[in-house]
């Protein structure tokens, strides 16, 4: 078990270094940071001085090593655009994105899993057919279109919910939350639905196909032959056996939700990291872009690690093998 965690941690470090390399390569290939920072009347000498001051005239490897070293400390340098530490900007933006992602993921799970179970158990029912047909919409419509449609209906036509922003936020230490105010909840509904819709349909279809698969197995037939109640068979025996793939996909999708919040945040002007990233792209604010890339990579790696550990909780076959390995 511990050996497994250490092995996974080493792999994670390699993945993060690769992401960092790509993020760092941005500095050299996307525009010239000096041009972005200085005015038009700066002399070439001043440019060289600035380049030297920022360490941009050193070799690639030295710069990369310094970048990684600083990144590990959470220091991504100064934003070109705002001339403030990038870490500080990200910390301000992170709560909004994490709250939105969390609410969206929860929504997707709370609706997707029961719908998947229902459509898996009652394959021929009309409601199942309706859910499956509707889910096609969720899978095929692009996120921005769903967001705009929701804004049109609920913000413009009905006027029930705000079309942009985060509402009133409350500060708890460095964290800001919109989940403690009514206007915050109202503001999060539409973006959360937009972000959750695709994930929800994905989870529903996954749970459904896994349920159908598991319900065909011998141990389910044997459980029925022993007279166990429907609830015990469907939820106690079948559902738990569908969990391993569902946890895998849900975990990966949580990473995807955080990463793809970019589009939703842009549509709803949600003041999170995604919006920050888009703004950074427009200004070629490379430190912000690089930090965002590394951070998203970090989230993915952490989520994957948690997913792998959850397998051990769910599936005893993995646990035992490792106990044997540890013993022998």
């Amino acid at each position: 078990m511990i050996a497994f965690v250490i092995r996974r941690l080493c792999q994670s470090v390699v993945v993060l270094l690769t992401v960092a390399l790509i993020a760092f390569a941005l500095f050299n290939y996307v525009g010239d940071p000096i041009n972005n920072m200085v005015g038009q009347d700066t002399t070439p000498a001043e440019r060289v001085a600035l380049r030297h001051e920022l360490g941009l005239d050193q070799s690639f490897l030295v710069q990369f090593a310094r970048f990684v070293g600083h990144a590990a400390e959470g220091n991504f340098g100064l934003s070109y655009q705002e001339a403030r530490p990038v870490g500080q900007i990200i910390l301000e933006r992170m709560p909004a994105t994490l709250e939105l992602s969390f609410v969206a993921a929860l929504l997707a799970l709370i609706l997707g899993v029961p719908m998947g179970i229902y459509t898996g158990l009652h394959r021929r029912s009309l409601l199942s057919q309706a859910m499956l047909t509707t889910s096609l919409v969720g899978i095929s419509l692009p996120t921005f279109l769903i967001g705009i449609l929701l804004i049109l209906v609920f913000a413009v036509m009905l006027g029930w919910l705000p079309s942009y922003g985060r509402g009133t936020v409350v500060h708890i230490g460095w964290w800001t939350t919109g989940l403690l105010t009514i206007s915050g909840w109202k503001a999060i509904i539409l973006p959360a639905i937009t972000l959750a819709l695709f994930q929800m349909t994905l989870i529903m279809r996954l749970v459904r196909s896994e349920m159908i698969e598991v319900l065909r197995t011998d141990y389910i037939k044997f459980a029925r032959a022993r007279g166990l109640s429907n609830r015990a068979v469907n939820f106690g025996h079948a559902l738990k056996n569908t969990l391993v793939p569902v946890i895998t996909i849900t975990g990966l999708q949580l990473g995807a939700i955080i990463a793809f919040a970019v589009i939703t945040e842009t549509v709803f002007q949600w003041p999170g990291m995604g919006l920050m990233f888009i703004q950074a792209v427009t200004f070629a604010d490379i430190p912000v872009m690089a930090a965002y890339l590394v951070l998203v990579g970090f989230f993915f790696v952490v989520i994957n690690l948690v997913v792998d550990l959850l397998y051990y909780v769910v599936d005893p076959r993995l646990r035992i093998e490792h106990e044997h390995a540890a013993g022998g």
């Binding site: 197995t217 011998d218 141990y219 037939k221 044997f222 459980a223 032959a225 022993r226 025996h237 738990k240 056996n241 769910v314 599936d315 005893p316 076959r317």
Partner: peptide, 14 residues
């Protein structure tokens, strides 16, 4: 009571 053919798949692995 019922007994099925394949004992390897008759029991819930979890």
């Amino acid at each position: 009571g019922a007994i099925f053919q394949d004992p390897l798949t008759s029991l819930n692995p979890l």
